[in-house]
Amino acid sequence: MAAGNDPRSTAPDPPPGPDAPERARLDFARRSSYGDYLRLGTLLAAHQPLTAAHDEHLFITVHHVSELWLDLIVRELRAAMDQLAGGVTDAPLKGLTRVVRAQEQLTAAWEVLKTMTPAEYLQFRHAFGEASGFQSAGYRMVEVLLGNRNPTLLRPFEHRPDLHGPLQAALHAPSVYDLTLRLLAARGLPLPPEVLERDLAAPPAEHPAVLAAWLTVYRDPQRHWDLYELAEKLLDVEDHFRAWRFNHLTTVERTIGFRAGSGGTSGAGYLRRALDAVLFPELWQVRTQL
Rank of each mutant, 00 (worst) to 15 (best):
V286H: 07
Y37D: 08
S33N: 11
R272M: 01
H126D: 09
A231F: 00
F124D: 08
G133R: 11
I73F: 09
T117P: 04
V278K: 11
S175Q: 10
L235M: 12
Q105P: 04
R8N: 12
G35K: 10
A274W: 08
L181A: 02
L58W: 07
P166F: 13
L26T: 11
L271D: 09
V99W: 06
L283D: 05
A205N: 10
T251Y: 04
D220V: 01
V100K: 15
R31T: 06
I256E: 08
P156L: 13
V99I: 12
A131I: 02
T117H: 05
H164R: 08
L113F: 11
P15Q: 06
L84A: 06
Q105N: 13
L230S: 00
E56I: 00
A52S: 10
R254T: 02
L227A: 13
P18A: 13
Y139H: 12
R182C: 04
L275Y: 11
L279K: 12
R101M: 10
E194N: 05
K233Q: 12
V237T: 03
V142D: 14
L290K: 09
T61K: 03
G129I: 01
E143C: 07
P18C: 14
W214M: 06
R8F: 15
P208A: 15
Y218E: 08
A24F: 13
R287A: 05
V100F: 07
S32V: 09
G147T: 05
A212G: 06
V217F: 03
R245S: 14
V286R: 06
L122C: 01
T216L: 00
P190F: 02
T152D: 15
A127F: 04
D162T: 08
R78A: 13
A213R: 02
P203C: 03
V62A: 09
A260M: 09
G41R: 15
A46C: 04
L58P: 02
G41T: 09
L290C: 07
A209G: 02
P193T: 03
E56G: 00
H207P: 02
V210G: 08
T42H: 14
Y37V: 11
L68R: 08
L44P: 07
